[in-house]
């Protein structure tokens, strides 16, 4: 085995053991997920640096290889990374090797125009990588690539980090909450009373001006 490969393998092993330790620590505090938002932001920063370095446009794309389940507490950060990837036209490919589908990565690939795939047989991972994910952006226009089966669009609420189907949304900053609040915790706008209250209040006002 040449030096390069053994070094690469050693680093990968180190990374996995460190990650395991970290997730064990995190599991104590109740979270057991990988830091997707952090890795996405780092990749985007690197891409931005290459963009700004010169006229070079290497047509970058991001590949996420995720094994652990989503961490709903990272929702905002992940969504922000996804939108900034969309703005800089960087597709996010996702290869999920964990047990369950990842809603974050489904959305990421859907929004940025990348490929989302959950390989059926993990033994042939290399073939999946070289067949699907190694395809350059130009060739993707001509090739049959895995289509999204269905995208889980559910969001996490900002207050309790729960994944919800239905909730309350701030009309000013579009923050999502699972139950009614008096004041938006993100932008600080004060939510008015229910519609009926407002109507009766204006009626009262008119009445007073008449008298």
């Amino acid at each position: 085995m040449p030096v390069l490969c053994s070094k690469l393998l050693r680093k990968l092993e180190e990374f996995v053991t460190r990650d395991e330790k970290l997730s064990k620590e995190a599991a104590v505090s109740g979270v057991g997920s990988s830091l997707l938002s952090g890795s996405l932001s780092m990749a985007l920063c690197y891409i931005q640096r290459v963009f700004r370095l010169g006229p070079l446009h290497p047509q970058p794309r991001i590949l996420c290889l995720q094994g652990s389940p989503d961490g709903p507490e990272q929702y905002v950060a992940v969504m922000n990374s996804i939108f900034s990837a969309q703005r800089s036209m960087v597709p996010i490919d996702s290869c999920v090797i964990g047990a369950q589908h990842s809603a974050f990565l489904q959305q990421a690939s859907y929004i940025t125009g990348g490929v989302y795939l959950k390989p059926q047989q993990l033994d042939g991972l290399f073939q999946y990588l070289s067949t699907v994910f190694a395809t350059d952006l130009h060739s993707r226009n001509f090739l049959q690539l895995p289509k999204p089966v269905g995208v889980d669009f559910r969001a996490s609420c900002f207050c309790h980090k729960n994944t919800i189907d239905m909730g309350y949304i701030c009309s000013v900053c579009l923050s999502i909450f699972c139950k009614h609040h008096k004041k938006c915790s993100t932008c600080g706008s004060i939510f008015g009373q229910a519609q009926s209250d407002v109507a009766s209040a204006s009626e009262r006002k008119r009445k007073s001006s008449e008298t």
């Binding site: 290399f126 073939q127 070289s130 067949t131 190694a134 350059d136 130009h138 060739s139 001509f142 090739l143």
Partner: peptide
């Protein structure tokens, strides 16, 4: 050409 390059990579270990 890009497509041919992709085919070679794909077949590399087949």
């Amino acid at each position: 050409p890009p497509l041919a390059k992709k085919y070679v990579l794909e077949m590399l270990y087949i």
